[in-house]
Design a protein around this nucleic acid. Structure first.
Lengths: 238, 238
DNA sequence: GATTTGCGTCTCGCATTCCGAGACGGCAAT
DNA sequence: ATTGCCGTCTCGGAATGCGAGACGCAAATC
């Protein structure tokens, strides 16, 4: 099958990147593997280096550059948000509460996606908000499945205990009442990546007036199901 | 600063990739963000799509493509090997035994790098070899810091116990004698990635005749130091 | 130590490639 | 029904990129 895209420089570029997928290569090796003329391979490799898509190792050989990882991180983030957004909207509509997705970032959790209840009394967490790992049901979920040392380190200053995290693992979800903020209750469940690691937490949150002092009783099923659907969709997308 | 690389098509390509780093974009948005003429932006985007560096989302917008993740995975693997190889060589020379680096892959551990003792009685594990997770000091290290559920699942069929994994966590290294193979002893220590997660195990292995029935006594310090050096170098490289 | 070979890098004349104005069809907005 | 904007395509022309050849350097060979 013809591998030509109609833009010759990009066809040559793809060949160069492909050649470096197997490991570092000298210019001579690039020439051999890609079949390009030496000045051509040199010019394209140096131009890619200039844009940080390639770099050189300690022996002057070409390697894939740091920009590749930057773009891959951006691409991964996009994929998760694309998958999660319709699930959050469905969760909001099903439960009648605002829904969010949180990821851990050092000692904080970041709201990376949200579907807000449109009217009336509601909990608003704007996308981008950083919240602490010491309070809230999402913090419990992001911490509960860590290896024991990191779990215990994470409990310092937390408003929940190791015992409640054990309960989270057993039930598969966490609930909180007036932990992060007075008058707000929430329920969270894990989103798991490849290999089952917890990579995010999906939540609904709202006023205690509506959710009561046992918010899990109302909404745990819906939240766990939402987490399962996001997890399954991410596995399918890989 | 002039961002020109000397290959105009690659300059335009870098602009397109950069525009998509923030999220999906229609052709019109690409034109706006990059300043390219519409047919130019279209031709380059479609050519990148052809090489899987871009793709389209459900609404026809351009997004970063699957090839980005493939190249990033290859680049990450390269970096770890580049960092580990001199450390394995130094470990081999210091201990006089063969040294290896293992990564976990489902129910196996793969030897991804090795520095072999050149002469005499020696343990040879060729790069690429898949070994079981049920025996050997590297298996203990790759399992010891898992979250409890995955740790217990991993103990099924293993020739070591939860108690010995607790000892591994306490000491920071594992030793095995005649576990994977009669006559072979080994010592392993963790390699940790960003955030401290165990991502690989560094090992020395050799005959029981030389290493004795307490191989950790001889070589644990050197192996733990090697693991720390690889971990530190990976953190610096990011 | 001298010579040869192969490397990475650079130049520049030329031909091909890429550019972008304009056209087209489709669809959403008015 | 009309208008405006979108994505896609064509094609003449000019600018870009190509690659043969040259150069300097270092490693390999004799």
């Amino acid at each position: 099958m013809d591998n030509s895209s109609g833009v010759g420089v990009l066809d040559k570029t793809a060949a160069v990147l492909g050649a470096l997928e197997t490991g570092p290569a000298s210019l001579a090796q690039l020439v051999q593997v890609t079949g390009l003329a030496r000045p051509t391979a040199h010019r394209i490799a140096v131009a890619l280096e200039r844009h940080r898509l390639l770099a050189r190792d300690g022996q002057g050989r070409f390697i894939l550059g740091p920009r590749i990882a930057e773009l891959a991180t951006a691409a991964g983030e996009d994929r998760m948000l694309a998958v999660a957004q319709p699930v959050l909207i469905a969760l909001r509509d099903l439960t009648g509460e605002s829904a969010q997705l949180y990821r851990r970032q050092a000692d904080s959790r970041i709201c990376v996606a949200a579907a807000e209840r449109a009217t009336g009394l509601r909990d608003t967490v704007p996308v981008g908000t950083a919240l602490p790992m010491t309070a809230g049901s999402a913090a419990q979920v992001l911490l509960a499945w860590e290896e024991p040392e990191r779990l215990h380190r994470g409990l310092r200053g937390a408003r929940f205990s190791a015992a409640s995290l054990a309960q989270v693992r057993r039930r598969g979800w966490a609930a909180s009442v007036a932990e992060r903020e007075a008058g707000v209750a929430s329920v969270s469940a894990p989103v798991r990546g490849q290999g089952g690691k917890v990579i995010a937490a999906v939540s609904v949150s709202g006023p205690i007036e509506r959710l009561g002092r046992s918010p899990g009783r109302l909404h745990a099923n819906a939240v766990v199901t939402a987490g399962d659907r996001i997890s399954a969709a991410l596995r399918r997308a890989s």
